[in-house]
């Protein structure tokens, strides 16, 4: 794992945060974050509440600027996914995807076919004409993923996108996501508070400490894909990481 990360670092990263610091008023939310995400790399950001995960994602997305330090992103407009699907309820599933394609400048004639293709990619063939309110939470998040992909960005930023789903649905979405990531060679930053989810998905897991958010530790996850959340290796590493996460939280209790 170490050797691959060295070769990866040599290429231009998909996102680079260098000494990125963010304050909101007096509150120091992120403290000198150094994080490179290589092209095609899947990084999971893990931390307890108040670690500034979402703030970090906003910086990477260019929706917010760091108070100090720099953030460089290769993609002009990274695709974003939130815990809520944020789909437009006045459009069908396909309409949502097509709107993203349209705003990205794709011809009217090509939109329909491309939308069908993206929906098939997230295993929603035939859902083009479905209304958002007719779909389950898992289907909505897959449409949201298809819409994010429709923006054509190679960088996908995800803010706890599966947190509101039940375990079985989440399992399926993990599969869809890693599948899409491998096929499209995306770079992904995936924010979660779920250790197992982080280990299940990421090539690298970054643990953030809380208040202020700092990078506490990193793990390269050497477990080969396809992984399953109940795999022994996943469970074992999760246990180790959970120990460190608890330690981080405990530190706050003492102060």
């Amino acid at each position: 794992m170490t050797s691959t990360s060295v070769t990866r670092a040599a290429a231009a990263p998909a996102v680079r945060l260098a000494g990125a610091t963010k304050r909101f008023g007096d509150a120091l939310v992120l403290d000198r974050i150094d994080l490179d995400v290589a092209e095609g790399e899947f990084v999971c950001l893990l931390g307890a509440s108040g670690c500034g995960k979402s703030t970090l994602l906003n910086l990477a997305a260019g929706l917010d600027r760091p108070t100090a330090g720099t953030v460089t992103a290769g993609a002009a407009r990274p695709a974003l996914m939130f815990q809520e699907h944020a789909l437009f309820p006045w459009l069908t599933a396909g309409g949502n995807v097509e709107l993203a394609l349209e705003l990205g400048g794709l011809d009217r004639k090509e939109r329909r076919a491309e939308a069908e293709r993206l929906l098939a990619l997230v295993r929603l063939s035939g859902a083009h004409g479905k209304r958002i309110h007719e779909m389950s939470g898992g289907m909505r998040q897959r449409v949201a993923l298809a819409r994010a992909l429709a923006q054509g960005s190679q960088l996908l930023l995800m803010d706890e996108p599966f947190a509101a789903l039940d375990a079985i649905t989440r399992d399926v979405l993990h599969e869809v996501l890693t599948d899409v990531w491998e096929k499209r060679r995306l770079s992904v930053i995936f924010v979660t508070h779920n250790v197992r989810e982080a280990v299940r998905l990421g090539q690298r897991v970054v643990l953030l400490s809380s208040r202020p958010g700092r990078i506490a530790r990193e793990w390269q996850v050497g477990i080969p894909y396809p992984r399953r959340i109940e795999d022994h290796d996943v469970a074992e590493l999760s246990l180790e990481i959970t120990g460190h996460l608890r330690e981080e939280i405990r530190r706050h209790a003492r102060h």
């Binding site: 295993r123 389950s136 898992g138």
Partner: peptide
């Protein structure tokens, strides 16, 4: 996934 979809629509 298609089984879930059918159940949940």
């Amino acid at each position: 996934s298609s089984g879930l979809d059918a159940l949940e629509s």
